[in-house]
Computed example of a mutant assay.
Amino acid sequence: MVREFGLEIEGFDPVLAYEVKGKEQGPCLVIISGVHGAEYVGPRALMTFVEKIKNEDLDFNGRLLIIPVLNESGFYGGLKQVVAEDGLNLNRIFPANGSTKAHLIAKEVQEKLYPQADFLLDIHGGDINEELEPLVFFPAYAEDGQKNMIDKVMTNLSTTYLVPSQAKNGLYSYANSLGIPSLLLERGGMGLWTDEEADLVILNIFQTMKALGMISFDVKNGKPKMIKDPVYLSSPSRGVWYPKFKAGEFFDKGEVLGVLKDLRGDMIEKFEASYDGLILYQNIGLGVCEGDHLIAYGKIS
């Protein structure tokens, strides 16, 4: 049975959430999407997933906690990265210690969802200025039982790449720093969505549930490739950005990955590859600000 409830955000409308209980005891899987407003594949997938559960008798053990859209104002406004009410990137403020809406949402996640989670899946997609390969970020610092559970899940996911991360200030990464096994799934890009991509996210959810022992029926597993030594390039200033490759394309060491110029066409910086590798995701916006992500690349392990 699906139970609808809300995450209470003081001074604002509650965030829509669902609880689904299985037929037997088992792990609690927390699934969240819509942290960034214009990343639509995840919300589309979770809305479809909830409807699927309502209309079909899903035979599983354990419990699901599902939030299709965590950042509703960003979602309805089609905003790049931020919460409308305070202009903050919700995925960059964990642990939350402020009083604006983004902090209040993050506190609810920390206080209400983290304690219940045996595993957490945070679903993202390329924002309106990003193109990417389907990939999963995982905590490179996880150890022992936490690492074993993460490895068991992510190696069965039908994404293209697995990317190690040292980050600890995002929704999934802060959960990992507290010992909660968590992954960040990326599908989609450029503020677009398709039913096919949403269906692939749903497949990833079932693959996660299978790996956690929550379902017994057969699920087709993926064979993602491991990435090592990822490099993240950011803009040193505002400027006009010209990437030279597309997400998923391979390049050779020393090749120019992109150039940053000013409005007059004068060169600000040229970015060259430090090794043979491939583009994981990149900014495709023509205009960029200081500190904006430009390219993430890596090499297959």
Rank of each mutant, 00 (worst) to 15 (best):
P139F: 08
K261F: 12
S237F: 11
M226D: 07
G189P: 06
K270H: 08
K112A: 11
L178F: 10
S301E: 06
P164G: 02
S234D: 08
I53Q: 04
G37C: 06
S33V: 00
F12D: 06
Q207F: 12
L90F: 07
V163A: 08
I279R: 00
L65V: 12
V231I: 03
D195G: 10
Q146L: 05
M190V: 09
G62C: 05
Q166N: 13
S158Q: 10
G191A: 11
I205A: 03
G189K: 01
G191M: 06
K80T: 06
S301N: 04
E131H: 03
S182K: 08
V219G: 15
F138W: 11
I67F: 15
A296C: 11
R238N: 06
R187L: 09
A142R: 07
L260T: 03
Y174N: 02
I227R: 03
L79D: 05
K23W: 14
E255W: 11
P115E: 05
V136H: 14
V41K: 01
C289F: 14
Q282S: 10
H293T: 01
D266Q: 13
P14H: 14
C289M: 12
G74H: 04
G248F: 06
S173M: 04
D276Q: 09
V20A: 12
G37Q: 04
K147D: 13
K23M: 07
V153H: 06
K54V: 04
D144E: 06
L90V: 02
L257E: 03
D59S: 14
V50A: 14
V163F: 12
S99W: 11
V20I: 15
A296L: 08
G298V: 00
P224W: 11
P181S: 04
L79A: 05
D252M: 14
G77Y: 10
A142Y: 12
E131W: 01
G179C: 09
C28A: 11
P224C: 09
D122A: 07
P224F: 15
A45D: 00
A273F: 05
A38M: 14
E130T: 00
V256F: 15
N61E: 12
K147Y: 15
L104K: 02
L286Q: 10
D13R: 10
K107G: 00
A45C: 10
K168N: 15
H103N: 15
D292C: 14
K246R: 03
H103Y: 04
